[in-house]
């Protein structure tokens, strides 16, 4: 059985090659959502350098990216996140509710509702805007195909949905029925519901499906940079939502691991001019007034409303996205 021995030896060799763990001095795990990859890649390096200069300690920052809801669930189920930087406050609330991982007042701990940068929802259309899409009303016209991910599985898609709702509600001077009707019509024009924001962008750009993509502002800029300025352009609607992606230290995890100091410094660094500069570079709207000023011409001005219009995320989730909520009612059987 010579071959058997050979296989065994090869297996053992592979095993030794594969088992060689690397342990850094101190490790920080940032669990984040999809569109922040490029930003945090750069920010992590900047912070590691800053921390080394300040304290002389080396810190290795690990990043995990995925759909916001899925990431929150992983943390609840035991993914050892020191900090979470997610797409919406509801997902961090879930950490409080389902895991008791941080205090209920987490959002008051850092400035600006614990969201160091903001974004909004804009339209991405094909170059030259062949369908002449200008504002939300154009999206519900017959024959227009809208690409947006599934709000049930994507945090960004929930912002899309609420932006549309908020516009319609404002236009019909507060009528919930009119808003519901508008959103129903909009989703009737959606041919593909991807599970995540990045998947929707790929469907729109690479597969050539649809006339308009609803996207995070930073995602729209990134898509143009990465996938072709000659193919796409951004249309800014008259009104949209102020998306506030929140950040928080996961109290229970940092206390167990003894990483509270570095975790807090990490999030605070987001609010420094250096951090804000990087955020702006990756098309997140900075919060610090002087930087907001500096990058004012980079970001279009439009009327923005925020989540309080919907009574906060808990309320919005319950009314619109929970099982049997308004979004489910759009997809009635037999339609």
């Amino acid at each position: 059985m010579k071959w058997f021995k050979r296989v065994a030896i090869a297996t053992a060799a592979l095993a030794t090659l594969a088992v060689s763990p690397v342990w850094g001095n101190s490790q920080l795990l940032n669990v984040s959502y999809d569109p922040t990859r490029e930003f945090y890649k750069e920010f992590n390096d900047a912070f590691a350098k800053h921390w080394k200069d300040q304290t002389g300690e080396a810190v290795e920052i690990k990043a995990s990216h995925g759909g916001s809801g899925k990431q929150a669930r992983s943390v609840i189920d035991g993914l050892d996140a020191d900090v979470v930087t997610l797409a919406l406050a509801y997902d961090i609330d879930a950490l409080v509710e389902n895991g008791n991982l941080l205090s209920k007042e987490w959002q008051a701990k850092l400035p600006y509702n614990s969201s160091p940068y903001t974004s909004t929802i804009v339209f991405l259309v094909r170059k030259g805007n062949p369908k002449g899409i200008k504002d939300w009303d154009d999206l519900i016209k017959p024959g227009i195909q809208v690409i947006t991910p599934n709000p049930k599985t994507s945090g960004g898609a929930r912002w899309n949905y609420l932006a549309a709702w908020g516009y319609a509600e404002g236009k019909a001077s507060g009528s919930q029925d009119a808003a519901k009707d508008f959103v129903s019509k909009l989703y009737k024009n959606v041919p593909v519901l991807d599970t995540g924001a990045r998947g929707a962008t790929t469907t729109f750009v690479q597969r050539g499906i649809g006339d308009v993509l609803l996207a995070w502002e930073n995602e729209a800029f990134l898509a143009i940079n990465e996938l072709g300025p000659d193919k796409l352009e951004i249309v800014v609607p008259s009104v949209s939502i102020l998306a506030e992606p929140p950040v928080a230290v996961v109290d229970k995890n940092v206390d167990r691991k003894g990483t509270r100091k570095v975790a807090e410094a990490y999030l605070t660094y987001l609010y420094t001019p250096e951090g804000q500069e990087l955020a702006a570079k990756h098309y997140y709207r900075p919060r610090l007034p002087q930087l907001a000023q500096k990058y004012a011409d980079r970001f279009p001005t439009l009327t923005l409303f925020d989540i309080t219009k919907f009574g906060g995320w808990q309320q919005a989730q319950k009314t619109h996205f929970a099982d049997g909520g308004v979004f489910d009612q759009i997809y009635k059987p037999g339609q």
Binding site: K62, H65, L227
Partner: peptide
Amino acid sequence: HIRGETNTMPLHVEILYNEY
């Protein structure tokens, strides 16, 4: 999905794909 730590090859494919 911890980069460089718990990402197997198929998961890494997904990550790269999602980074365009």
